[in-house]
Amino acid sequence: MAYLKKDMIDFHKAYSHMLRLRVAQEELVKHYLNKKVFSMVHFYIGQEAVATGVCDALKVDDQVMGTHRSHGHYLAKGGSFRMLAAELFGRVTGSAHGKGGSMHQVDRSVNFTGSSPLLGSAVPIATGVAFAQKYLGKPGVVAVFYGDGASEEGVVYETYNLAALRKVPILFVLENNQWSINSPIKNRRSQGYNLEKIATGLGVKYEHADGNDYEDVYTKTVKLVGSIRKGGGPAVLECLVYRHMAHSTPLMEEKHRTGDVLEERLKKDPLKKLKIKIVMSGVLEKKLAKEEENLRQKICTDIAWALEQPYPSKEELYTNVYN
């Protein structure tokens, strides 16, 4: 079996990975509200188990791509937080020299190949990156993250077929947070809509995971990626998640989210869930609190560094258009 034995997962480490994403974003929210962030931002708070569960199951050679809500994917693959913060503040030392902002994350040194915010657009591109990987005989698979809104775009269905046709080594990670901006999924899907049937009908493997559960995401990724590596062709991993905040602002409550009450959903918060697990296994809460404090300290130091960084010069406007 490709499944990893449960006792091989270091849940404490996994919790630390997830916490890094959560704390980094919580601190960025403060600066967004203080109007220091000059970039459209889509926060990933609440969905951390997916980014970390998938990325922890990948190897260094594997590449990751994402869309508009990709702070988490970038950080989970090992992207520099300092450069992310600098990018959000529009500084020249940001990951994209301040030209991209929140929606254009990249760090090729850790094989985070790029995020592109036109939803489904990133899906064929990531498939092409994986196609090149296979064509050049290089090891490694590609994982692309996108949402339930993106997955309704025609290009995504087209890509499922094309990826299966060419046996491209790609994992499609669909984070279903059940909202496309402010349209609930029930407004957007026919009663008979069945993604498993669609994906498998197009020749792509399909698995469903609880996106609030790190272990479930991790083990299913290990299984699917194992098959992809052996040439088994592409797979979809659909993860049901909860987007704590509004589409693109750090608003916690939105009137239109009836029947989707924050309080109820917070009970399923992936961090809370994992924390209980590791405390039960004997890790002291005090130790975890200290670790969180240290992490926050480090994040704040990085943010302070980023806020000191220079802005790009006017010349930057004209560079990197063409070679």
Partner: peptide
């Protein structure tokens, strides 16, 4: 899109 990605990939 596949070709765009393949070009990004080398």
């Amino acid at each position: 899109g596949l070709a765009v990605g393949a070009s990004i990939g080398g």
